[in-house]
Design a protein around this nucleic acid. Structure first.
Lengths: 242, 242
DNA sequence: CGTGAATGTAATCACCGATTACACAATTGA
DNA sequence: TCAATTGTGTAATCGGTGATTACATTCACG
């Protein structure tokens, strides 16, 4: 038993026989049309694409992005292993769809955080942006990984993904331009500030997700407060001294 | 992650029965005692462990960390698929060994960079440290990923890995303490500076590796110069103003 | 209705990691 | 010297996965 401690999940690892699908007579499609409010079980699923994405999101939450398998998603959707092929030609296509949904949620979260700050203080908004970024990543590590790891899709593959991402980038640029216009910054090299800020929040989020915190002496309970501290340090560093 | 690491290796070109065992590198230990004429192949490889690690490093370089497969490493070593099991009970154990070797090289590179700076200026050393960190990561992306992704091993599994890592952490702490003692810092919260600095360089390295640079308008050719710029921005931000 | 386009099933294939029984070599020590 | 022990590679097999094709069923629309 000892050896099965908990190796970073390799998908091919143990698959406890938990998959008991309610015995589905594979060729008794129609049948109960009348009343069964439970499971009409039609031959055609009807909403497979959506259900597959949901299942994949769930799998990612449970075991990390690498734990997502097309077959398992199909199992959870109650269809055959080949069925997803109709909707997603490859696993990467599924992951792209997952990424789209995850990124959509991400953006909603960011937008909400920014909306709660004053438009009169661009630097404060910039700070709130960074905080919201790190918070969401730490709260949804697997989804964040799908979005950002660059291993599951290319931006060239998804118009929505690319647009969403570009919009976030444009937002940071706008905030920095406003801050500069209001004389809040001590440097005018916005490009460098933009990349540095992004690297900071992305790096912090990945440190959490990649399990670096224990080695660096950051307890999970104080991660949020540490995020506040580093974004404050950064913003103070770029702000024009009073 | 059982297999999908190799997306479309069109099956035909994939593996013609070419076992490139020709000219097995490094030591062919005994064997060559009497008749090296026909087949220097001994039943016992003699140095399989080392060769497997080398092959895995090579595979990582070629196709990323996920492209490393035990079977392919065995193929390149000219042994049967089960042979590696004698030396590495699991793929993760192989990857841990790969990580150890990669981390050793990483540390050598860092040490060399630091040695080239003056001990009288801790902040300059801190800066050089960060630069060396980002440079090595960008030069050896796959190896860096194996070390840092946290997906291939746990620090609990490898004494050497843990010690190497702790030493790097201790080094940053020492540098910051020295800098503070010399009055180079405007803040005395070294812990926050430490985490923020680490997040910055790690985040920048991962942005490069994860393919974020194009979206953020950073050309490959200027990545090094951008690294210089952001570490400068950061150091200026924490330095006591003159 | 009836027919064609969608959509799911079944059956394969190749690859992978893991594991076991077995074969062979190298080392040891009496 | 030589037999036994220990170490190391081979062969065979298992279950899991992504991909792909031929076939079955159903739906939607004329």
């Amino acid at each position: 038993m000892s050896k099965s401690a908990k190796p970073p999940p390799s998908r091919s690892a143990s698959k406890p026989p938990v998959r008991k699908r309610a015995a589905r007579p594979s060729v008794v499609p129609r049948a109960a049309k009348g009343r069964t409010t439970t499971s009409p079980k039609t031959y055609h699923h009807g909403d497979l694409r959506r259900v597959l994405i949901a299942a994949a999101l769930e799998l990612a939450e449970e075991g990390g992005a690498d734990a997502v398998s097309v077959r398992e998603a199909a199992r959870r959707a109650g269809v055959s292993p080949g069925a997803p092929f109709r909707h997603f030609p490859s696993r990467n296509d599924l992951m792209s769809a997952v990424a789209e949904e995850a990124q959509r949620r991400f953006r909603v979260s960011i937008a909400a955080a920014i909306a709660g700050t004053s438009a009169d203080d661009p630097l404060a908004r910039f700070r709130a942006f960074g905080m919201a970024y790190m918070r969401w990543a730490m709260t949804n590590p697997a989804h964040f990984e799908v979005i950002s790891s660059g291993k599951y899709f290319s931006h060239d593959q998804s118009e929505a993904l690319r647009e969403d991402n570009d919009e976030l980038i444009a937002m940071t640029e706008q905030l920095l331009m406003d801050a500069l216009a209001q004389g809040q910054l001590r440097s005018s090299d916005l490009r460098v500030i933009k990349i540095a800020g992004r690297a900071l929040v992305y790096g912090f989020a990945r440190m959490k997700i990649d399990g670096h915190f224990p080695r660096w002496g950051v307890a999970d309970a104080e991660a949020d407060q540490m995020a506040e501290a580093i974004i404050t340090l950064f913003v103070d560093g770029i702000a024009k001294p009073v």
